[in-house]
Simulated assay, not measured.
Amino acid sequence: MRDEPDPRVALVERFFQGTGSSYDFMVNASTFGIDRLWKRRIVSLLPTDSRRVADLACGTGILTLAIARHLPRCHVVGVELRDEYLSIARAKLGRSGLRNVELVLSRAEDYLGTEPFDCIASSYLAKYADLPRLVDKAWQMLTPGGLLLMHDFTYPPKPHLVRTWRVYFYLLQRMGRVFPAWREIYHGLPELIEHTRWLEELPAALQAHGFTDIHREDLTLYGSAIVTARRPA
C-alpha cells in the first residue's frame, strides 16, 4: 500500500510552488526589510569558531551565503526540500565566488550529515517541521557543545499587536492580487502562524532529547523569535 504524503510537505509545496524566482524580492518587500535584520541577528549568534554549520530549509540561500561570508573558514551546508529554490541558490553561489558552501537537496527531517556540525541553524522552518524528529536528527549531527538555532514567525501575545498583525496580512493579501504566485501563502500563512505551537513544542522536544541552555529571544514587536539550545559538552 502506498504511503500517504506528509501533510507538512504538501503544505510547503502548496504555498511555495512557482515562487522561487520572486522569493528574495518578496521576502524583503513583505517584511519591509526586517528579514535582513533577523538574518543578521541569526548570523551574530553563530559561534565564531565554528568549522561546520548546517542551514536547514535554506531556500534560495539567503542565510546560507550570509553565514559563509561571515565565517569564511567554516564549511556551510545548505539543505533544501524544493529543487526550484535550490537551483536558485546554486546560481547565486556560482556568482558569489564562495568556496565554502555545499548545497544538498533533502527534507530537513531526512538529512543526516556524514560529519558533525558545530551549529545547526534554520529560518522559517519550525512551523512546518516535525519537531521531535528534527530535534533528534540535530542531536545526532551536533558536536558536544554544539548549538541549535531555530527562527520563525510568531503570533503576537498582546491585543494591540494582534490588530496590527491582522492589518499587515490584510495588506499582503491585497498584494497577492498583483503577485498571484504568492496568493496562496499570503492567505494561508496567517492561520498557520496563529495556530502553530512551535514555540511550545520545540523547547519540549529539546528538553526531552537532553538539550540544555534553552533560550528564546523575541524579535521586532513579537513578529518572530529565535530559540537556541546546546547539546551538552
Rank of each mutant, 00 (worst) to 15 (best):
D3P: 08
R8G: 15
R8I: 11
V9F: 13
V12H: 13
V12C: 14
V12L: 12
E13H: 06
G18Y: 13
T19R: 07
T19I: 03
N28T: 10
G33Y: 08
D35C: 02
D35I: 05
L37N: 10
W38C: 05
R40P: 11
L46D: 09
P47E: 03
T48H: 13
D49T: 08
S50P: 02
R51T: 10
A54E: 10
L56F: 02
A57Q: 02
G61Q: 04
L63V: 05
R69F: 03
L71N: 00
L71M: 07
P72D: 06
C74R: 13
H75T: 07
G78P: 00
V79Q: 02
R82Y: 12
D83M: 05
E84T: 15
N100R: 11
L103D: 01
R107K: 13
D110E: 09
F117Y: 09
L125G: 08
Y128E: 12
D130F: 11
L134A: 06
K137T: 06
W139H: 09
W139R: 11
M150Q: 15
M150T: 14
H151L: 01
Y155F: 14
Y155D: 06
H160Q: 13
W165F: 12
R166Q: 13
L171V: 15
L171F: 11
L171P: 06
R174F: 10
V178P: 12
F179M: 14
I185P: 11
Y186C: 03
H187S: 08
H187D: 10
L189H: 08
L189G: 09
W198F: 11
L202A: 05
A204R: 15
A204C: 08
A204T: 07
G210T: 01
F211P: 08
F211K: 00
H215V: 13
H215F: 15
H215R: 11
H215W: 09
L219M: 14
G223H: 04
I226P: 08
T228A: 10
T228D: 06
R230I: 01
